[in-house]
Amino acid sequence: MDKTYYDPKDLRKFGKITEWSEELGTKFFDYYGQVFEEGELTAREKSLIALAVSHAVHCPYCIDAYTGDALKRGITKGEMMEAVHVAGAIQAGATLVHGVQMMNKVNKLEM
């Protein structure tokens, strides 16, 4: 396949979004940078959260970026996969908990 919607090289160009809207782009990247600084959560903890969320939001750029970031921080494969399972469990739970709504509706509709 010659063309795909995603090109791994586009991740390098992320910063260019600022070129078409400098004020908002700059604000975003300043905010982004600050979010990942050491705070009440460590930068390591934030990196693992980001990895899990990257999977939940199905963002291939984010998965590439935060897998690399995790390796850089010495985060183990086991820790990384556990984080992905957290995302998976929440997504599965989010689907299944709607089952209660389904049950409520069935109970309401049935005699």
Binding site: A43, R44, G68, L71, K72, R73, G74
Partner: peptide
């Protein structure tokens, strides 16, 4: 040294962990 195609993380944090 990183075991792959990535850069090392923060030296002080890694020292603490190791």
């Amino acid at each position: 040294n990183p075991s792959g195609a990535y850069l090392p993380g923060d030296q002080a944090s890694m020292e603490k962990e190791m």
